[in-house]
């Protein structure tokens, strides 16, 4: 599980950094990232994610 948590954190940081947003846990509240749905896949800032990824990254299907 450590590897998976590390991976998800990496993914989240990469997604936020690419969007020019502060990292998770930073003082400023991040603006919500647009989530596009394609069937069972969710695309956030270009990353193809699962519903479990959204939950782990605290992102929401908009």
């Amino acid at each position: 599980m450590t590897g998976r948590r590390s991976f998800l954190k990496t993914t989240a940081l990469a997604a936020l950094a690419a969007a020019g947003l502060p990292a998770l846990g930073a003082s400023a509240a991040p603006a919500p990232l647009p989530v596009r749905r394609f069937g069972e896949a969710f695309v956030v800032n270009g990353w193809i994610l699962t519903a479990r990824d959204l939950e782990a990254l605290r992102l929401h299907d908009t």
């Binding site: 394609f38 069972e40 695309v43 193809i48 994610l49 699962t50």
Partner: peptide, 24 residues
């Protein structure tokens, strides 16, 4: 292909893919 492959990588525990905008 690309969208399902992205899901396959997640399902298989391989990783995640970031697709180029023009594909979508």
């Amino acid at each position: 292909a690309v969208l399902h492959f992205g899901m396959l990588l997640a399902d298989q525990g391989i990783g995640r893919v970031r697709v180029t905008d023009w594909i979508l």
